[in-house]
């Protein structure tokens, strides 16, 4: 069996990739995808912990958290995509840098 450390390392690496995606990507849809990557990092970590609680058994607490959290991520993505469609209507582009009329 692979050591648990590798799964945690994977989760943290996924999290950093998600943050990199949010910081550097210009396409608004890719930003929403970055959010999904961030949430999935946490999911990987939950599932790994629940599988490693004891040998041959899994802990259903971690699974139930992930099941519910997936649907929340779906809600946020849906709302994000709705806002993206309106941004596209206003600007005729998905480049987030064209949007920066507001001061950061």
């Amino acid at each position: 069996m692979i050591s648990l450390s590798y799964y945690i390392a994977c989760a943290v690496v996924l999290y950093i990739i998600g943050l990199y995606c949010l910081a550097s990507k210009r396409n608004m849809i890719k930003l929403v995808m970055g959010l999904e990557i961030l949430v999935n990092a946490a999911h990987v970590s939950f599932i790994a912990f629940s599988a490693y609680r004891s040998v041959g058994y899994i802990d259903p607490l971690g699974h139930s958290v992930v099941i519910m959290s997936i649907s929340f991520a779906g809600c946020v993505t849906a709302l994000g995509l709705v806002i993206v469609t309106y941004a596209y209507k206003h600007y005729k582009t998905l480049d987030v840098r064209k949007l920066r009329r507001l001061k950061w």
Binding site: R53, G56, Y57, I58, D59, P60, L61
Partner: peptide, 8 residues
């Protein structure tokens, strides 16, 4: 607190 475990 014994956890409520499920068979894999």
């Amino acid at each position: 607190q014994p956890p409520e475990l499920v068979e894999n």
